[in-house]
Design a protein around this nucleic acid. Structure first.
Length: 271
DNA sequence: ATACCGACCTGTCAGC
DNA sequence: TGCTGACAGGTCGGTA
């Protein structure tokens, strides 16, 4: 489900509702795959902690945890939503959905719930880390962006999906950015010209910003922390439009597999 | 080092 | 009404 715009939307809506709140107690479900840190450690870190700040890094939600009177941030709660994960702010009386794996009971009386049917999501805690290692698509400069692809033989789409290069682009926005830039997904990354890289950089930034403004893309599961859907699915130009006419030239949109993922493009507009 | 592929999960939908 | 197969926002580890 969630790529950069969706995770950004969730982080903002969580921050608006529960930043400054305190975790009174926590319930953890029994599916071991969910926990990337030992569950006892997660429970210990969360219980009694104040949620000092909530933000997005790549595709994960990062919550600063403050303990005790010093209010010093020593640990962070990390949630990666995988394909179908949701972080929801709920009232205690609301029904507990199937596939709920964590409930944090807050001092305000509300709850944060982690729901994830496919269980590709991961929950962990880590010691406070101020610096990230990889590049954010909306912060990286053009020269650094261009250098990421130099000499690489893999398809440009696979490179955009590689989180070690750029953090946050997923299947939807890779396809949409490549369409807007007029570049075929299978083009070897290292063969893009300077002009094409510049176009891709601009297209990527534009589509991500527009998607954040729209509250993300809701196809089946995705909702923000308040349960609201995004609207960017109405603005998609190629993703999941196989066979439909291109909005620019009316050629049918093609679907192929690149990097093991469904890939949608216009054979006329993308070269 | 780089690139590719199957595995990890549940749910939904189309076709028979 | 089942049943089967394809597909779905992501990442990881093994292999060549």
């Amino acid at each position: 489900m969630p790529e950069l715009p969706e995770v950004e939307t969730i982080a903002r809506s969580l921050a608006a509702r529960v930043a400054g709140d305190t975790v009174v107690s926590v319930w953890l479900g029994s599916k071991p795959q969910t926990w990337k840190s030992p569950p006892a450690e997660i429970a210990r870190a969360l219980t009694g902690a104040r949620l000092a700040a909530i933000r997005r890094e790549g595709k994960q939600i990062v919550i600063d945890l403050a303990h005790g009177r010093s209010r010093k941030i020593r640990q962070q709660w990390i949630v990666h939503l995988g394909m179908t994960g949701q972080l929801l702010v709920a009232r205690p009386e609301s029904e507990i959905e199937k596939h709920t794996h964590l409930i944090a009971h807050l001092g305000s009386g509300r709850e944060i719930r982690f729901v994830d049917p496919r269980r590709f999501g991961r929950v962990s805690v880590r010691e406070f880390a101020a610096h990230e290692r990889h590049y954010e698509p909306l912060q990286v400069d053009l020269d650094t962006f261009a250098a990421l692809f130099r000499k690489r033989k893999l398809p440009i789409k696979a490179a955009l999906l590689n989180q070690k290069l750029l953090r946050g682009i997923g299947n939807i926005y890779a396809d949409e950015a490549l369409f807007r830039a007029g570049i075929r997904p299978r083009r070897r990354a290292g063969t893009l010209t300077r002009a094409e890289l510049q176009g891709l950089y601009a297209a990527m930034r534009k589509v991500l910003k527009e998607a954040i403004a729209a509250g993300g893309t809701s196809i089946s599961d995705y909702v923000d922390a308040e349960g609201s859907e995004g609207s960017f699915q109405l603005k998609l130009r190629v993703y999941q439009r196989t066979g439909e006419p291109c909005m620019v030239c009316r050629s049918p949109i093609k679907r192929i597999i690149v990097g093991g993922r469904s890939t949608h493009y216009c054979p006329q507009c993308q070269r």
